[in-house]
């Protein structure tokens, strides 16, 4: 279990990016984090990944304190960040260089197959499309079999079609080993399609605002009433988090507009 206990982060320039974030994430849970720009979502994820240290509070994974990158925690960034001097297969195997060669090759082949890039194993990253590159990045993060996988707006640079495709890929990969997934997104649909639980954050200073249950049956039907209901709740919470008070009657309209407006 991942525990955040009163985590705060104040940057050197005095910005209070996070304050008093306390959070429990169960093993295998899929958690989405949404919130306006600058409310500390990336800061939170980077603290959990161990790339940055929180200024206050502690983060523990199964009782172990996280103060630097940990082998059980993987991260996928907004950009693929592939190493241009390694082929796709070598990029995917980057994090498991310590394993014996045969085991490494077996795992790389397997995960490449899962993300549908077997035929690209030998090419350079420059020859990939944006969506393919992000799939390689996902494969690279998964291959060490992390217990927690963090994703910071992993699909935001992709078109809607590729995005849905990758959401399915991630869910399929998740079903395999059931790691804990924590992902940041600006896309409420994406949050509701993927997450068990959606956290809404609010800015200045960045803190948790609302914790919304999205425990719908999988695979999720975007047309269902339950889906719509959760989506409305999230949009309403987002509006409130940005101090845009909404009266009960026009919540529905606002929610529709909000989908396009709040970021």
């Amino acid at each position: 279990m991942l525990l955040l206990d009163h985590v705060g982060k104040t940057y050197a320039n005095g910005v209070r990016a996070l304050e008093g974030v306390t959070l429990n994430v169960d093993r295998g849970e899929i958690l989405a984090i949404v919130g306006g720009s600058g409310c500390g979502k990336s800061t939170l994820l980077r603290a959990v990944s161990g790339l940055d240290r929180p200024s206050q509070g502690t983060i523990t994974l199964d009782g172990e304190k996280i103060a630097e990158p940990h082998e059980k925690i993987g991260i996928i960034f907004q950009e693929p960040r592939l190493l241009p001097w390694l082929t796709v297969a070598e990029n995917v195997g980057f994090g498991i260089a310590h394993l014996p060669k045969a085991e490494r090759e077996r795992r790389v082949t397997r995960v490449l197959d899962k993300v549908g890039l077997t035929d690209k194993a030998g090419v350079w990253p420059r020859e990939l499309s944006g969506g393919q590159a992000q799939r390689v990045a996902i494969a690279r993060a998964l291959v060490p079999q992390p217990q927690v996988l963090l994703l910071d707006e992993p699909f935001s640079a992709l078109d809607a079609f590729t995005r849905t495709d990758l959401q399915d890929h991630v869910l399929a990969l998740w079903a395999d080993l059931k790691p804990t997934l924590i992902f940041v997104t600006h896309d409420v649909d994406e949050a509701v399609v993927m997450a068990d639980r959606i956290l809404v954050m609010r800015p200045r200073p960045g803190r948790l605002y609302e914790d919304i249950d999205a425990d719908l049956p999988r695979p999720r039907d975007r047309q269902s009433a339950a889906f719509d209901f959760v989506k409305r709740r999230v949009l309403a919470a987002l509006d409130r988090s940005l101090d845009r008070a909404v009266s009960v009657d026009d919540r529905q309209d606002k929610a529709e507009q909000g989908a396009a407006m709040w970021w």
């Binding site: 790339l51 630097e68 990158p69 960040r81």
Partner: peptide, 11 residues
């Protein structure tokens, strides 16, 4: 820096 961070993320 982003590439170096990839290295750091893999410890």
């Amino acid at each position: 820096r982003k590439i170096v961070e990839v290295g750091r993320a893999f410890r």
